[in-house]
Amino acid sequence: MMKKNVGGLDRILRIAFGAALLLGFFLNADAAYRWAYLLGIIPLATGLIGTCPPYALLGINTCKVKN
């Protein structure tokens, strides 16, 4: 299991951005690039789970350290 490396404001922004993209998917039925809105699943999932694989590879951690 991967450690949590997404925290605080980062999680909120990911969830909001992902939800906005998915909302665009459902509201734009006739758009030519409607499939691109499905990419909102990625930031939404990483925000909800709290783990971002690219962050892990790059050594980035936005979670506050618990003492």
Rank of each mutant, 00 (worst) to 15 (best):
A45V: 15
M1D: 11
A29Y: 00
F25L: 11
Y37S: 09
G8K: 06
M1H: 11
D30Y: 04
I42N: 02
M1R: 07
L57I: 13
M2R: 09
Y37K: 03
I12L: 15
I15E: 05
N28M: 08
K3A: 13
A32C: 00
L39N: 05
K3T: 08
I60F: 14
A36V: 11
K64F: 07
W35K: 12
L57P: 00
L9I: 13
I41C: 12
K4D: 12
F25W: 14
L22R: 04
R34Y: 05
G50P: 02
L44S: 08
G7K: 02
G59K: 09
A36I: 14
L48F: 06
L23H: 10
N28H: 12
G18N: 10
N5T: 01
D30I: 01
L23W: 14
I60D: 09
G47A: 09
L27C: 05
F26Y: 10
C52T: 08
I41D: 03
L22Y: 02
M2C: 03
R34G: 06
I42D: 02
Y37E: 04
L13T: 12
G40Q: 01
P53Y: 10
A19H: 04
V6P: 02
N28F: 11
K4H: 13
L23T: 14
L44F: 13
I60E: 08
N28L: 10
C52W: 08
